[in-house]
Design a protein around this nucleic acid. Structure first.
Lengths: 229, 229
DNA sequence: CCAAAAGTGTTCTCCATACACCCATGC
DNA sequence: GCATGGGTGTATGGAGAACACTTTTGG
């Protein structure tokens, strides 16, 4: 059953850039393509948008089908429309991105993907289509956004130490931070809850665990407060 | 000659939110639709993307066809894909925005528009489709961006006084600024060129004219400098 | 002379930075 | 005891906020 139109129409797809944090590295979730074009090549999870689903639904569906990751809080990144970005013909892709806790997701390749895996952003394999460009833009967006919105917490376990948090900011901002100043600044916001629990690291004293007060932040943000680091 | 596909495809359009500044008001460029749906209603300039043109080319073409405005430096805003946003059927629209000098553009309605005109953002008429939502998002984006990029200058004449510039920031940030502090801060960046020319306003002393040093800014920005107001 | 607008100077506070220091733990 | 890492305290400079003040022009 064919669908016919007066004018030719571009195909519409979505692609997802999902970031996770693993000790030292910021990682991206990729799938190995099972079908042409670019069969065998690593690529972002994504695919065609159905006629009766929203863009965001399509992104979440494809992500779930290809990697098993469900309920990922995706945000729209940018729409890529270069003429030659897909060898099958004119294809416009709406890209989404998300930050997740690596530990929350156990991957399982499915549908049109052979495999799904995390790659450090500094050691990406060759990628299909213009997906390298998409990841670069997503990185830029995340690095800009982390300074003005508390999105870093989405990458950490729910309970974390201040030093883990500092490490995260050092990775995302790509510079080292003063320990004392970091603690003062982040605690002064009064957005962290001290849990009176401790993490037994290897050597040295046990580190206090904290939790991000998401609800309090939401209330403050609505009242005009701007998180800034 | 019909074009047929195995699966139904959404239609793809672009919409343009063009801002201009007029003394006191931030204004948006709208067209009055000539054809159905929403004939007679005001709407954003925009239309269908041809199969062999990029999204940005489509946006510039539609803007030029419907309003006469050419060479507008458009930036992508967001892609709207709600299922019911167009009564003709599933339509996904990539929205663009731009800031221009009102004086640079003399409007002329054309093609499928009856009329084109500037409206103050605080006094918008009823709008077609989800265009109100698009303008609201564009406003939010501009208001956020003006603090970290020198985009305000695109709304002013090439030569301007510091007080005009201050007025612009007061409009965009929606708060009043201290004269002395504003001058100190903006001059301390050393991004304005003093022209030794003066503008004869009504009453009071003549005001010094300045020009934004775009090239210098570009060089600094590449070296990591961040404009911040 | 007066109102309005251009432009300068001063004070105070707060915060980012840099850096020194102390304490707890494992080996 | 000592290296490692957790956590606190302090001096300094610079930027932002608030506000006073001078000067120039048209009416």
């Amino acid at each position: 059953m064919a669908h016919c139109y007066k004018y030719p129409r571009a195909a519409l797809t979505v692609d997802c850039v999902v970031f996770g944090l693993d000790e030292q590295d910021l990682k991206v979730l990729l799938i190995q393509r099972d079908s042409e074009p670019f069969a065998g090549t690593w690529a972002l999870p994504g695919g065609f948008v159905d006629i009766d689903e929203t863009l965001e639904d399509a992104a979440n569906r494809e992500l779930s089908e290809e990697t098993g990751a469900k309920q990922v809080p995706l945000e729209q990144l940018y729409t890529f429309g270069d003429l030659d970005r897909d060898p099958r013909g004119r294809t416009v892709s709406v890209a989404y991105y998300a930050l997740v806790r690596l530990s929350d997701y156990s991957l399982q390749a499915a549908s049109d993907a052979r495999d799904a895996a995390w790659f450090a952003v500094s050691e990406l394999p060759g990628l299909a289509f213009d997906h390298k460009k998409i990841i670069d833009l997503a990185l830029e967006r995340v690095r800009g956004k982390v300074r003005f919105e508390p999105i870093g917490f989405e990458l950490l376990p729910r309970k974390f130490t201040l030093n883990e948090l500092q490490g995260l900011y050092e990775i995302l901002l790509a510079r080292s931070l003063d320990k004392g100043d970091f603690r003062k600044k982040i605690l002064a916001m009064d957005l962290l809850e001290e849990l009176d629990e401790f993490e037994q690291g290897g050597t040295g004293p046990a580190a206090e665990l904290y939790r991000f007060r998401k609800e309090k932040y939401r209330r403050l943000a609505e009242a005009g407060f701007v998180f800034e680091f």
